[in-house]
Write a protein that binds this DNA or RNA. Structure first.
Lengths: 229, 229, 229, 229
DNA sequence: TATGAATGAGACTTCATTCAT
DNA sequence: GATGAATGAAGTCTCATTCAT
């Protein structure tokens, strides 16, 4: 998203650094309570130079939101489109979601807390993306009900339970801790899948199939992100 | 928490009204983005008179937090002290928690979003109360593991799952909607208790026992709050 | 034009004082080159208090324009509606126009110079008022041509000559000087009426009739303004 | 007015282009409201290069003023020095004045509007030149009174009427329109000369003599400018 | 109790200018 | 000749708070 024409090669790099540092500040103190001067301080830039890179304070917020939502949506779309059974896709989606949260914890904090400071189109776009995300989750849950994996639940309420459990994680999780995305995802899904299970259904093999799926992929490792970064 | 000495009889009433209206504003626009002038406007009071009642803007935030935390802790302490088995007490606690959230939705929104604007002692007290609350939940969950109701889970992670599921509700719940605290509590606990269940355990009778408990009480009706208001 | 509800009796008075002083400053240095801090200095008010009265810098400009245009249009409409012959009405209009210019010389300076700093509706309204004013002048000139007082001229160009001659006066006139509105109006009209005169027409009696008209009025003195001030 | 020593051949050309474009911008938005960045944009130059050519923003204003005043004064001095009768010289001067205004309409706009942004010597020089110009006009008018062409008028007020009529033209004239300098000059002088005429004087032949004078000149066409460009 | 007026710090943003490369 | 990056002062405006009445 380069701004005015005619910027040197270092421009975009420095710009991304500034956004990084701003996200950390906003996460710690809140967007509204953080002054642009503080952003300049941590970026080592005078106010004027700062604006050369960021355009406006709200624009900084937009960029942070984008960094959260763009890769998240990309991952989730990819997973939803896989030819696997719904419960496995939910397990994958859970892990991707947590990976994204953990990877950019301060961005997510800002994303969850300060979107009310967006105005006009920026705000509308954000809300649209949120709904898009929720719809995908809901469709997978309904698919799992339809194939008998889950009992018949109110789809909306089931979706909200799924999201409550995952999204609230940013409030307390520590990236330096013992828990990583995979561990949390296993725990959450263990609870949710048993809790949602249809009569006689169990999902003892879901972790095996998860491993199998990942092993079959050319590049073993964490679930790849599709995002641009 | 009466402030300066020597106030007429209407003082406390008006004060509570102001806090009500401030909470609504803060919930809608965020604490930092709401001006004290707006509070005055909706309260129908000029700036000077407003300060006569509220002391300071941060104090308003403290009061709102108190209104959430005080009755919540009181209810939870009462329930934790009942002579019922842990799973039933968790079911009660879940409902009380949701009742409190729904009863003061905008207060809860402020409570969850804007506590970072508290400073010094106010902040410390808040964090202490949060931990106190979480500990009670955790003790109940451990008790349920100990009596075999739940499988052996990481107690901390089990607690956080319980809290994620309940606390994130404020983000989307509507008080005018079809879902009340009882309905949500039944749904959440159905998921959690099945998800946490120890081998061979089921909780098909938990709702009956909930009803039985409530019926035996002198005053039927919603779980009583202990709070001051 | 009282602003927010609930202002004391002195509010409007002080507000008008501020506008006075701002007009003087803007006239001397130009609107864009004058800082709001300077306005505060000459008004003896800190920045905050200043904004309590003015709302915004552009609003100050709007008020100044209004002070020029409102009474001007009112006078001119009144004169145009009189049952006197066109040339006499033009003579009256000339004097009123100059009286308005001399009465608020610095306002007029701002009005002529800085209207480009108005935006949106404010600008549109100003341009509308200017056209309205010019149309009245043009109609009177055409009426004078129709009754044979003036020769057949291009109406638009005649109007512009009339306005050039009068409006540019603000550039050099001094209110402390020997020339008042009546003197200037006599001189300008002497030039214009001879210059525009139809064949065989002279206006030697126009000053007598002007005096007669004024004498006949109940309150002798300067042409009354209709404006609110 | 070449600036730093040692410039290539294209320097002055590019410099003049920049001044052209700056004048257009200043005329449209006002000097104070136009940023140096905008000048750079329309000139296709980055900030650094721009300053290589212009020195400073105020210098740009000085150059624009010079482009108006220099050729104007030259023409006017030339005409004043002709051996023709005063009224004819005034007619010539009128046309030259209007030609200069129309030829550089945006420069004139800036000249009339933004001279208050000049400081120190630049400002003093401008005011000196304006007075010089006015004095020439006044001398011609007095000469016309002395030879009986015009009646006895206050010389200063006659001068100001002459200048009002001509100088205010920049406010509304369009170069694409039907009116050119010659047409306007004829109309203005028709008004002024009849308006100023001494007893029994008429100037029916002034346009013929104007044509005759121009025809006699080697190079027929518009009044030549003496200016450097 | 209540008010309108005042404050002053600090918010975000723009701008003319400079300079190493 | 030309560029992009950086500066710092100054610009407009907001806001929590105080206080005489």
């Amino acid at each position: 998203m380069p701004r005015p024409p005619g910027h040197g090669p270092g421009y975009e790099i420095k710009r991304q650094e500034i956004i990084d540092k701003a996200a950390a500040l906003f996460a710690k103190k809140g967007y509204a309570a953080t002054g642009i001067a503080e952003v300049g301080d941590v970026a080592g830039l005078a106010r004027g130079a700062l604006y050369y890179y960021i355009g406006s304070k709200e624009n900084l917020l937009v960029e942070i939101q984008d960094r959260v939502m763009r890769p998240m949506l990309a991952s989730v779309h990819r997973i939803a489109g896989l030819e696997e059974e719904p419960v496995l896709r939910l397990r994958m989606l859970s892990q991707t979601l947590l990976e994204n949260i953990l990877a950019r914890l301060d961005h997510v904090w800002v994303y969850e807390h300060d979107y009310r400071n967006l105005h006009g189109d920026n705000r509308a776009r954000l809300l649209r993306q949120r709904r898009e995300f929720e719809n995908i989750v809901q469709e997978l849950l309904v698919a799992a009900m339809d194939d008998g994996s889950f009992r018949k639940l109110d789809p909306r309420l089931a979706t909200l339970q799924f999201l409550n459990l995952h999204n609230h994680t940013y409030q307390w999780v520590r990236t330096d801790g013992e828990w990583d995305a995979e561990y949390l995802s296993r725990a959450y899904c263990a609870t949710l899948f048993r809790g949602f299970a249809g009569p006689g259904r169990q999902f003892d093999d879901i972790e095996d199939r998860m491993r199998a799926y990942l092993a079959q992929r050319v590049t073993p490792g964490p679930l790849p992100r599709t995002g641009e970064e």
